[in-house]
């Protein structure tokens, strides 16, 4: 697992590369939370276009960040998830709670907080 964080105008794009399971969840969670609080993030986009595998630990990471972002009055989106990941995202009910987009560009347009 590898990840890159890009922040621009209170929008944070977190690109997670490889596999996201319980083993990596803590590191991802802690890294994102520091950034969200430090930079007063309003839109958090998970770029999953390079993510090959995710189990329910990944759902836990996204749900937890959603809770945190709601407290700060922000939003969370997922972008670029492959079909195999969409299955678990739908099953979890996440698709009813956050924006799901094909690409980060779409998420940036759709997820803008007025």
């Amino acid at each position: 697992m590898d990840m890159t964080l890009t922040e621009h105008h209170k929008t944070l794009v977190v690109k997670i590369i490889g596999e996201l399971d319980h083993h990596y969840a803590t590191r991802i969670r802690e890294t994102i939370d520091i950034e969200i609080k430090d930079k007063d993030i309003r839109l958090l986009i998970f770029d999953l276009s390079a993510l090959e595998f995710m189990d329910s630990s990944g759902i836990g990471v996204i749900m937890g960040r959603l809770r945190l972002m709601k407290q700060q009055g922000g939003k969370v989106c997922v972008a670029g998830a492959k079909d195999s990941l969409n299955k678990i995202i739908c099953l979890s009910g996440l698709s009813g709670l956050i924006g799901i987009y094909h690409s980060v560009e779409e998420a940036m347009k759709g997820g803008q907080v007025a």
Binding site: S56, S57, G60, M63, L91, S92
Partner: peptide, 8 residues
């Protein structure tokens, strides 16, 4: 508290 989603 550990953000287990309960979906296993």
């Amino acid at each position: 508290e550990e953000e287990r989603s309960g979906m296993g």
